[in-house]
Simulated scan of single mutants.
Amino acid sequence: MLLPCFNEEVTIGKVVRDFRAALPDAVVYVYDNNSTDRTAQIAREAGAVVRREPRQGKGNVIRAMFEDIDADVYVMADGDDTYPADAAPAMVAKVLEGYDMVIGDRLSSTYFQENKRPFHNFGNRLVRGSINHLFGAHVTDIMTGYRAFSFTFVKTYPVLSRGFEVETEMTIHSLNNNLRLYETPIRYRDRPAGSVSKLDTVGDGIRVMGTIFRMIREYKPLPFFGGLGLLVGLIGLALCGMVTAEFVGTGMVARFPTLIGAIMLVIVGLLLVSTGIILDVIAKNDRKAFLVEANTISYMRRGRR
Rank of each mutant, 00 (worst) to 15 (best):
Ala40Glu: 13
Arg52Ser: 11
Arg106Tyr: 04
Thr140Ser: 06
Gln113Cys: 03
Met143Val: 03
Arg128Ser: 13
His133Asp: 13
Ala90Thr: 11
His133Cys: 12
Glu67Val: 02
Gln41Trp: 12
Met91Tyr: 06
Pro84Arg: 08
Thr110Leu: 04
Ile69His: 05
Asp100Phe: 08
His133Ala: 14
Asp141Gln: 05
Asp81Ala: 12
Ala71Glu: 02
Ile103Asp: 00
Val49Asn: 08
Arg117Ile: 01
Val102Lys: 04
Ala137Trp: 10
Ser130Asn: 08
Thr82Asp: 02
Tyr99Cys: 01
Ala46Val: 14
Asp72Ile: 07
Thr110Val: 02
Phe112Arg: 13
Ser130Trp: 13
Ala85Lys: 06
Gly129Ile: 02
Pro84Val: 03
Gln56Leu: 14
Thr144Pro: 07
Asp141Pro: 04
Thr39Phe: 14
Arg51Leu: 09
Tyr83Glu: 02
Gly47Ile: 14
Glu97Lys: 10
Gly123Asp: 02
Asp70Met: 03
Ile131Asp: 10
Ala137Ser: 15
Gly98Met: 04
Gly123Ile: 00
Glu67Arg: 15
Arg125Asp: 08
Arg63Pro: 07
Ala93Asp: 14
Asp68Leu: 07
Val50Gly: 04
Thr140Cys: 09
Met91Gln: 06
Glu45Gly: 10
Val73Asp: 02
Met101Asp: 01
His138Asp: 12
Pro84Lys: 05
Arg44Ala: 15
Leu134Gly: 02
Met76Tyr: 03
Asn124Glu: 10
Asn115Tyr: 00
His120Gly: 00
Ala46Cys: 14
Thr82Lys: 06
Arg55Ala: 11
Arg55Leu: 13
Ala48Glu: 13
Ala88Phe: 05
Ala71Thr: 02
Phe112Glu: 07
Glu114Leu: 06
Gln56Lys: 15
His133Gly: 11
Ala90Gln: 13
Ser130Val: 15
Gly129Asp: 15
Gly123Trp: 02
Arg55Met: 11
Arg44Leu: 13
Ile42Glu: 15
Phe122Val: 04
